[in-house]
C-alpha cells in the first residue's frame, strides 16, 4: 500500500515528488499539505491526489491533519519537507515550523492507526565543514554545532537530530535524507541567491569543491525512501561535483577573489541594499573548505545514484 502524506507540497520539491509518486502505478493516494489556500495551488489533476491547507507550526493543525484527512485516507507514509527556506526567516515563528513541528508531528504519527513510515528531508548544511575534517562527508561526519551558528543552520541541525533521536524508540520506520544543496530557484539555495549578482566575490586563495543537486534527483531519492523500509540517515549526493570558481563560471557570472575578511561586510551590504537572501556567515566555512557528500549508503540501501546533472545553460539563462 502506497498512501503518502507530503508536507511542503507546494514547494518545487514537493511538486516534483508528487509527480514522481503519481507516475508510479502502485501509488493509491497522496495527501498534499501546504500553507497556501487551494485556489493558489497548482498541482496535477489526479483523482489520487488531495490537497489540504495546514499550518504545521501549530500543534492543533497537525492533530487535525493527522487524525482528520490522513486517517480517512488511511495514509501509510509521511514525507516531511516543510521548512522555512529563506535565511531571512528567523525567530520563534521560523523555529516553530523548522523544529517544533517535528516534535509534534512525530509522536502523533506514532499514535496514528495506519502511518508506519516517516521520511525527513534534511540538508548537507548540517555538517561541519572545516579544514581538519574529512572532505568527503559520511553520515557520521561531525555536525555543525559551533556556538555562533546562524539560526538557519541551527534549526536544521536540531530538526535533524530530533528525528534521529526517535529512531529505534518509535514504532515508525524512520529515514533522514541529507541532501546536497539544490541549485535551483525557490529551493532555499543560498548559492542560487549568491549567483544572482553578475559579479560574485569569493575568498581569495580558496576554491572549495561543492556538490550540487537537482530537484529531479531529490524527488527520486525521496520516492525511493518512501517505498523502502530502511531506517537511518542517508546522504543524498549530487551528480555535479565541482569547485566554486567553476560554478560561478558555468552560471555565466564573473568571479572576483577578495580577501576573506571583506566578504562578510560586502555581502551584508548587498543584503541590506538589495534585500537578497544570501548570507556570507551561513556559507563562510564551505566557501573555504570542501565538503562533498558520500552517497555510498544511499546507493547500497536505497538503490539511489544521482543521474540528473544540472542544466547549466538553462540555469545561466534564467539568472538576471
Amino acid at each position: 500500500m502506497n498512501r503518502h502524506l507530503i508536507t511542503g507540497a507546494t514547494t518545487p520539491l514537493g511538486r516534483a515528488l508528487i509527480a514522481e509518486l503519481l507516475a508510479a502505478p502502485d501509488t493509491e493516494a497522496i495527501l498534499a499539505v501546504g500553507i497556501e489556500p487551494p485556489s493558489r495551488v497548482d498541482l496535477p489533476d489526479d483523482p489520487r491526489l488531495t490537497y489540504t491547507r495546514a499550518n504545521l507550526a501549530r500543534s492543533r493543525s497537525i492533530r487535525k491533519l493527522l487524525f482528520g484527512p490522513a486517517k480517512d485516507l488511511k495514509l501509510t507514509t509521511i514525507a516531511h519537507l516543510a521548512q522555512h527556506r529563506s535565511a531571512a526567516a528567523q525567530g520563534r515563528e521560523a523555529y516553530a515550523l523548522n523544529v517544533e513541528s517535528i516534535r509534534d508531528l512525530m509522536p502523533m504519527a506514532e499514535r496514528h492507526p495506519t502511518l508506519r513510515r516517516f521520511v525527513y528531508r534534511s540538508y548537507a548544511e548540517v555538517y561541519a565543514v572545516r579544514a581538519d575534517k574529512p572532505q568527503i562527508l559520511a553520515e557520521d561526519h561531525p555536525l555543525n554545532l559551533a556556538p555562533r551558528t546562524p539560526q538557519w543552520i541551527r534549526d536544521r541541525v536540531e530538526a535533524d537530530l530530533t528525528v534521529c533521536t526517535r529512531m529505534g524508540m518509535s514504532p515508525l520506520s524512520i529515514s533522514v535524507l541529507r541532501f546536497a544543496e539544490c541549485l535551483a530557484p525557490d529551493m532555499g539555495s543560498q548559492l542560487h541567491d549568491y549567483l544572482q549578482s553578475r559579479v560574485c566575490f569569493r575568498p581569495l586563495g580558496f576554491d572549495p569543491m561543492l556538490n550540487l543537486t537537482t530537484v529531479a534527483d531529490m524527488a527520486r531519492a525521496l520516492a525511493l525512501a518512501l517505498r523502502s523500509e530502511a531506517q537511518g540517515v542517508f546522504n543524498i549526493p549530487a551528480w555535479d561535483t565541482l569547485p566554486l570558481s567553476r560554478v560561478i563560471q558555468l552560471a555565466g557570472r564573473r568571479a572576483v577573489p577578495v580577501p576573506g575578511p571583506l566578504m562578510t561586510p560586502l555581502y551584508a551590504m548587498r543584503s541590506r541594499t538589495l534585500g537578497t537572501d544570501f548570507r556570507y556567515d551561513l556559507n563562510a566555512w564551505r566557501f573555504h573548505f570542501s565538503g562533498v557528500l558520500d552517497g555510498s549508503r544511499a546507493r547500497h540501501v536505497l538503490g539511489f545514484d544521482p543521474t540528473h546533472p544540472i542544466d547549466w545553460a538553462t540555469l545561466a539563462a534564467l539568472l538576471p
Partner: peptide
C-alpha cells in the same frame, strides 16, 4: 593546517594533495 593556507591549500588539492584526516 595545510588546507587553511590561502592559495597553497587550493593548489595542493588540485594536484592530489589531501589533508590527513582519518576519513580522507
Amino acid at each position: 593546517f595545510v588546507p587553511s593556507l590561502p592559495v597553497v591549500g587550493t593548489t595542493f588539492s588540485r594536484l592530489g594533495v589531501v589533508a590527513g584526516s582519518r576519513g580522507n
